[in-house]
């Protein structure tokens, strides 16, 4: 791009005071990118189920790690356990955050929700909602079926 550096650019990220709408905007990208990587897990699950018992056992052992089942042993065990829980909880949160901020995009696509206070409220609500839904999801997985 041939840009004359002596001419000013329009104000960009560094000039604005951070607000929830900016956080939600960048989270939409970050969570979307993370979920794109996690799509490999979906493929692995289906391929493992189609391949056989052994392939499926390998997959479930990794998913067991991501859902924090099993008792960790030793320092390395606890670190691995913590990483697994962070990824497992993080992926579910990423899904709900991306879904809720995507719904917010749908509303804004029709031209609604740009009033400052409304915009701020719904930006905050996507964050509150994604945290609540993540907690509910894991509560159901871990305790809901009485397992």
């Amino acid at each position: 791009m041939h840009r004359n550096p002596s001419r000013p650019l329009s104000p960009h990220l560094s000039i604005w005071r951070w607000g929830p709408h900016m956080l939600v905007s960048i989270l939409h990208r970050v969570t979307g990118s993370g979920l794109a990587l996690a799509a490999a897990l979906l493929v692995w699950w289906l391929v493992a189920a189609a391949t056989g018992a052994e392939a499926y056992a390998t997959f479930t052992s990794v998913m067991g790690w991501l859902t924090g089942t099993g008792a960790p042993e030793g320092a390395v065990g606890w670190i691995l356990y913590a990483i697994g829980v962070i990824i497992g909880v993080g992926l579910v949160w990423a899904f709900f955050q991306h879904t809720l901020s995507g719904l917010r995009h749908f509303v804004m696509d029709i031209g609604a929700g740009y009033e400052l206070r409304t915009n701020r409220t719904w930006a905050v609500m996507t964050i509150v909602g994604s945290l609540l839904l993540t907690a509910l999801f894991w509560a159901w997985i871990l305790f809901g079926r009485g397992a």
Binding site: L42, V43, L46, V47, A49, A50, T51
Partner: peptide, 10 residues
Amino acid sequence: GLALFALFKI
């Protein structure tokens, strides 16, 4: 492609 073939095989 991998996921769809896996589903087909199942």
